[in-house]
Computed example of a mutant assay.
Amino acid sequence: MRVAIAGAGNVGRSIARELLANDHRVLLIDRDPGAIKPDSVPGAEWLLADACEVDSLEEARIDRCDVAIAATGDDKVNLVHSLLAKTEFAVPRTVARVNHPSNEWMFDEVWGVDVAVSTPRLMCALVEEAVTVGDLVRLFSFRGGRTNLVEMRLPTDSPIVGRRVGDLAFAGEAVLVAVIRDGVASSPQTDAALEGEDELLFVVNPDAEMELAEYLAPGVHRERVANEDDVDVDPER
């Protein structure tokens, strides 16, 4: 697989090293001469150019790439690069870094972004995942938010504790993709029974997240909703 990475800073170079370690071909693009450091990522191709210019992307032969990654520290650059890669060069898959959470809403298919990676949101999700039981935590969004990867640490009093995975019909056609028990992840087995404190990872449509949460932990879910409804919001504040 050939991957183009716009932005040869610390983030871009780290991504490049991981991809090279997995036997992919990588091209790093940056307009700052100081960022061009071939010795820092042996095996990568390098191009001193503006990743938001059509001529530069033609020179990079980005149309021959399977993936275009926008990894700069500037959200505007990441959006423009993704849009050009998708609409002008028909790159099959685009991944864009979101630097500021307030801009996250723009990183969708309209701007040519297949996958948006928001570091602040991801860190917040990981904190929630570590400390909450019975709450559905969104870890990642795919394809402009139409499908999400979510996680729940199963409460011990969940109605599905002790039941076989094969006997369960998860709400909203959610797909159980992994069960983490005692820190060890495994693919869900039809005959395996779920236990309290299991961490369950699902791929689910965002519209079905609340229904899934109610199915997995109805008591916790209803209590949280009730508490939210009881909050007295002062419109002057």
Rank of each mutant, 00 (worst) to 15 (best):
L176F: 12
T87L: 03
F107C: 03
L27T: 01
A174S: 03
V204I: 15
A21C: 10
S158N: 07
D66F: 12
A193L: 09
R25M: 11
P38K: 08
V41Y: 02
V113W: 06
A21T: 14
A193F: 08
V3N: 01
H81T: 13
I69M: 00
D50Y: 06
Y215K: 06
A6W: 01
I180Q: 03
H81E: 07
P101N: 00
E128F: 10
L126G: 02
L79N: 12
V26E: 08
P159A: 11
R163S: 13
P206Q: 05
T87W: 01
A192V: 13
E109I: 11
V161G: 06
H24Y: 09
F202H: 10
D66L: 12
E209I: 09
G134T: 03
V225P: 10
H24W: 07
V131I: 14
P33G: 02
L79H: 07
L84K: 03
E214L: 09
D191W: 13
V133Y: 02
N205I: 13
A185K: 11
G183S: 09
T94Y: 03
N78P: 05
A116H: 04
A6Q: 02
I15D: 04
D191R: 15
E59A: 15
V127L: 07
S186P: 08
V115P: 06
D182I: 06
Y215D: 14
V110Q: 07
E88P: 02
A85E: 00
E59G: 13
R121S: 15
R17W: 00
S82F: 01
S158D: 03
E223P: 06
T72F: 00
M1C: 14
E173L: 10
A208K: 10
T94K: 05
A16V: 02
P42W: 04
L122A: 14
E195P: 12
L216G: 04
W105K: 12
V95M: 05
A213C: 11
N227W: 14
S141V: 06
P155S: 08
R25S: 14
A21P: 01
V41H: 01
K86N: 09
D157Y: 00
N22Y: 03
G112D: 02
P33E: 13
L200W: 04
R164T: 14
T72S: 05
V165L: 02
D157R: 00
A44W: 03
A51Y: 01
F142Y: 04
N99A: 07
I69K: 01
G134C: 03
V26F: 05
L154R: 01
A4N: 11
D23R: 06
L83W: 00
R25V: 10
D30H: 11
R97L: 11
I5R: 01
G196V: 11
E151S: 15
G73N: 14
